[in-house]
Computed example of a mutant assay.
Amino acid sequence: MTGILAIDVGGTGLKAAVIDDKGALINERARVETPHPCPPSLFLDAIGGLVKGFPAYDRIAVGFPGVVRNGCILTAPNLGTEGWAGFDLAAALEKQLGHPVRIINDAEMQGMAIISGKGLEFVLTLGTGAGTALFRDGDLMPHMELAHHPIHDDKTYDEYLGNAAFEDKGKKHWNKRVEKAIDLIFTLLHFDQLHIGGGNAKHIETDTLPKNVTIASNEAGLEGGAFLWKKR
């Protein structure tokens, strides 16, 4: 069976695996640290090494932490927007790896694997920074960079909820911040369901969450790649 190469780009780690058309992993997930700084040339070198020896695949799906349009990167806050703005990552990866590429924001790719497809569903990913995605009845809505809007004392969601804030404030205080963010997002959208993913979702105190808020598997960041190549 020929699979899909799924790549989940994070501010601290690059993850990849070959998945089937339902999102199940065919091989064990591989991970390397994200280079810093991480211009496109270093990124491509890291990806080439990461996927060497992988099982056969004939398509590539990439979740990227920034604004992506038509395969081109518009912003890359955690990798360095200056070096990435306007870079055609889809074309570069297709040339390097020899297969067609589809790229989307990383929170959106994760969301594709975890949403139910019913009602208004919001995805919040918590890792190096904060990522967001919005779906209505299974359809992806236009991307919002909510992570870079202010939430408190001129701090953005990225600064307020990202890993630096978690390490600085500690788990208990950081959880209070997550609760505040959930309340604000609900006031903004009145979502039916909120899914929280990302590497720091494991630190959330689930007993305080509203019933319509759930924690998602971090593997969804790769599994969602299957849905870039088909409708749910």
Rank of each mutant, 00 (worst) to 15 (best):
K15Y: 02
K211S: 15
K176N: 10
G117T: 02
L42K: 04
I185P: 07
A17Y: 10
Y160G: 08
V62Q: 07
R232F: 14
K202A: 13
H148S: 06
P150V: 02
I215C: 03
L184R: 13
I103L: 08
I196S: 06
M112D: 08
I215N: 03
A133V: 08
G83D: 12
A91F: 01
E159I: 09
Y157E: 01
D20V: 13
F54Y: 07
A61V: 05
R177T: 02
A130T: 09
G86Q: 12
T2S: 13
I73E: 00
V213M: 03
V213Q: 00
D8G: 06
R59L: 04
D153V: 06
Y157G: 00
M1Y: 06
F43C: 03
F122K: 01
R136T: 01
L188V: 10
G119W: 07
L161W: 04
Q96C: 06
E145A: 06
L189F: 08
I196Q: 09
N200F: 01
F186I: 06
E108L: 14
E82K: 15
A90M: 13
W229P: 06
K22L: 14
W229S: 08
K171L: 11
T214W: 04
V62W: 02
S116Y: 03
G53L: 00
N163T: 08
G11V: 06
F54G: 02
A133K: 04
K211V: 13
G198T: 09
L140F: 02
K171Q: 15
T81Y: 15
D58V: 02
A133N: 08
P142S: 00
L188D: 04
P210M: 04
L50N: 09
F43M: 04
L74Q: 12
Y57C: 07
A181H: 06
V18P: 07
A61E: 03
V123R: 09
H99D: 01
I4G: 03
V32A: 15
F43I: 02
G225W: 11
N218E: 10
F87P: 00
A85L: 07
E223R: 15
A61P: 05
T187M: 14
E205D: 12
N218C: 09
F54N: 04
L44R: 10
H203R: 10
A107V: 04
W84K: 11
G86H: 10
D153G: 00
V213I: 08
A216E: 10
N70F: 01
G66R: 07
N175V: 02
R232P: 15
K52E: 04
D153P: 10
I19D: 09
N212G: 05
L134R: 03
A133F: 03
H203T: 07
I103C: 03
L140D: 05
E33M: 08
I60T: 07
I19N: 13
E121P: 11
G49H: 12
R31I: 10
H195M: 12
E219S: 13
D192F: 12
K52T: 13
P100S: 00
G197P: 02
L120R: 03
T187H: 11
H152C: 00
D8E: 14
E205H: 09
T128L: 00
I151H: 05
M141I: 01
L194Q: 10
G162K: 00
F122P: 04
A24K: 14
S41R: 10
N163L: 11
V68F: 02
E121M: 05
